[in-house]
Design a protein around this nucleic acid. Sequence first.
DNA 1: ACAATTTTTTAGTTTTGTCTAAAATTTATT
DNA 2: AATAAATTTTAGACAAAACTAAAAAATTGT
Lengths: 220, 220
Amino acid sequence: MTLSEEDYIKTIYHLSDFNSKSVATNAIAEQMKTKPSSVTDMVKKLSEKSLVNYKKYQGVSLSEKGRLVALSIIRKHRLWEVFLVDKLNFSWDEVHVVAEQLEHIKSDTLIDKLDAHLGYPKVDPHGDPIPNKDGVFTKSVKKLISELPVGSQGVCVGVNDSSAAFLKFLDKNKIALGDTFKILEIEEFDGSVTISTRSGSISISKQIATNLFLEIVDEE
Amino acid sequence: MTLSEEDYIKTIYHLSDFNSKSVATNAIAEQMKTKPSSVTDMVKKLSEKSLVNYKKYQGVSLSEKGRLVALSIIRKHRLWEVFLVDKLNFSWDEVHVVAEQLEHIKSDTLIDKLDAHLGYPKVDPHGDPIPNKDGVFTKSVKKLISELPVGSQGVCVGVNDSSAAFLKFLDKNKIALGDTFKILEIEEFDGSVTISTRSGSISISKQIATNLFLEIVDEE
DNA sequence: ACAATTTTTTAGTTTTGTCTAAAATTTATT
DNA sequence: AATAAATTTTAGACAAAACTAAAAAATTGT
Ligand SMILES: [Mn+2]
Ligand SMILES: [Mn+2]
Ligand SMILES: [Mn+2]
Ligand SMILES: [Mn+2]
């Protein structure tokens, strides 16, 4: 597998919503910052290798083989992210770009030994689950703050938007993975939400509420 | 810089004997397992970027700029080798192939933090020095066992041949970096050398003697 | 010195992944 | 249902990095 093929497979996986549903050529092109005609060429090639299911004008979906390739790349990406944060003291908003490169290093031994060295982590620094060698991972029952009713309580376990800008914003506002939040009030007018934290209660905008995942502890 | 350009620069550096002397097209082709015509094409390209000095039919040498690029790649290669051995428990004969990939990861922050994490090592697992950020490194005064007279004593600090086969041979014969050896006898007939180790004295063939470096402690 | 050999370069292809422009197909609108 | 708009594919071209075959230059042997 070439680096480029791997990037296409990963993009198709993410756009198909972990659901192996059909993805549009234009969507892939936009995500990969390339042209639709280039996507068509590559999709044909991936189809030849039976990594994707493809019929002209019908969109593309990952085959089971392709899904396993995607999960193996995602496993590597997330393990490297854990390494960068836990061992090299990167902050969680810096690791993604470096992991984009490291995920393409080819060595099964390397990734096994890295996994062991990190103590077999289950999630990456953004709260996303790390698949095992066979592509199996536990999809946690997490919900966006914006989807929860007043009174819900849970542990912050992930972000929807993992851009450096958003992650920096969270750091500045002392919101971190592992924090426990309770929904105190939802403002109908603008969708902003008041939540309680250890250090008191704060109000977060609707935009923030739609980008933070809680793992529900208690739903009164 | 592309991955391929980096590999050419590194090869030219090694073939020029760390000496910026002129290297033959055929030598590069052989080392890189490619054809001389491909080398000529690439050398022209590197010359355009003033990474090498090149005149038709005159061979090629690294410019100062090219030398610094080479040292930066070698720095990365050797730091990753230390990481693989010290942190991930690779054995020293397995690390080279993986480091060949890792050396191309582009992130200054990454390599700085890796260096710190490893405790700023001075040499890699094969005894080769690690250049600092500015390309400065201490060239140790090491000599091949085959070049030393009877009575010499020194610490084993490096290998000339770093193939997996040779490194495995050393492990099997309980020869490791850091061991102290003394030259007891040199057999004129076949060039084999008897050396004393902690565990007794052993005889090594001429071929081994020309591939092990000692840092001289005492030369009687 | 000059012919033979070796080394190096040039010229012309190939493969991978990209692009633009145009054609084909599907989807949306009246 | 017909037309307009958007999406997708095809056709043809290009840059990077490799190759083969042939030409040019340098080196070696007599
Ligand atoms: Mn990431
Ligand atoms: Mn992540
Ligand atoms: Mn090495
Ligand atoms: Mn080494």
